[in-house]
């Protein structure tokens, strides 16, 4: 069983922010990077499916610059076999449809039995790349999956709806599934595994035709605070005292 997992290196902001001079993105100096939380669940799920099927391969694919290999190494340290990194013009800050186009070519070349992505990336929250990728590959798909049972030519999966309602779906395989947190407990990579992952191969690829971008950021800005919260200042004791007063007043 060969599974491709799409993994993204995501960026998070601390408590300070400055923008690039064209104001279209945050200045990278203000960003920290990590493997997307949803993608670590997707990687874990792929590893478990490989393990229970007895053999096979887990390939992780990412669209990102050289620095993005760090996140992919995390997935390799968890146990994925090899990586593919796609990078080229037009991919910096790309919209999810463009990212899906960049992934489609390399995933197609792998002819996997199953493709997994995360539900969403924590920095962009598009919840779109996996579904767009499925369309470009001509594959069926289910978004927001919390359970997978592989059958013969199909898989029975749980699709988690709003309010926690589960839709039991039978999907033809191969397919693309976007994986929700909580589906499993992602393993920790041991130090030894992290070291070994350094030796695992990462193939570099250039994207084919990306077409026109589906969107472009015109301007990023810090949201206006609106009325905002009334801030409780002072030492923890003073804060706790104010909280007590607020609670007592509101519950009266």
């Amino acid at each position: 069983m060969k599974i491709v997992v799409c993994v993204k290196q995501v960026a998070s902001l601390g408590d300070e922010v400055e923008f690039t001079s064209d104001e279209r993105d945050v200045d990278p100096d203000f960003l920290d990077y990590a493997l997307n939380e949803w993608d670590s669940y997707a990687t874990e799920e792929a590893l478990r499916l490989r393990e229970s099927s007895g053999d096979g391969e887990v390939v992780v694919a990412t669209v990102g610059d050289e620095d993005a290999e760090e996140a992919m190494r995390r997935a390799l340290a968890m146990g994925a076999d090899r990586g593919i990194r796609v990078w080229g013009d037009g991919l910096a800050g790309a919209d999810p449809i463009t990212v899906a186009r960049a992934l489609a070519e390399v995933v197609r070349d792998e002819s996997p039995d199953l493709v997994l992505a995360g539900v969403q990336s924590s920095d962009a929250v598009q919840a779109a790349t996996g579904t767009a990728l499925a369309e470009l590959l001509g594959l069926p798909r289910v978004a927001v999956v919390t359970k997978i049972e592989l059958g013969d030519g199909t898989a029975t999966v749980h699709r988690e709806l709003e309010g926690g309602l589960l839709d039991v779906v039978e999907v033809d395989v191969p397919c693309v599934l976007t994986i929700q947190t909580g589906i499993n407990e992602p393993r920790y990579a041991t130090l030894r595994a992290i070291k070994q992952a350094e030796q695992k191969p990462i193939e570099e690829r250039e994207p084919g035709d990306l077409g026109a971008p589906a969107a472009r950021v015109r301007r990023m800005f810090v949201p206006p605070r609106g009325e905002g919260a009334e801030m409780l200042d002072g030492e923890p004791a003073a804060i706790a005292q104010r909280i007590k007063e607020i609670v007592e007043e509101r519950l009266r």
């Binding site: 999810p96 899906a100 929250v125 919840a127 767009a132 369309e135 978004a143 927001v144 709003e162 976007t178």
Partner: peptide, 24 residues
């Protein structure tokens, strides 16, 4: 809507038909 149902086909429409796209 930015909902679980729409996540299952909205981005596919954009990819297939070459439309502009944004979510949330």
């Amino acid at each position: 809507g930015f909902t679980v149902d729409s996540m299952g086909y909205g981005p596919a429409l954009a990819a297939k038909l070459g439309l502009g796209f944004a979510s949330d």
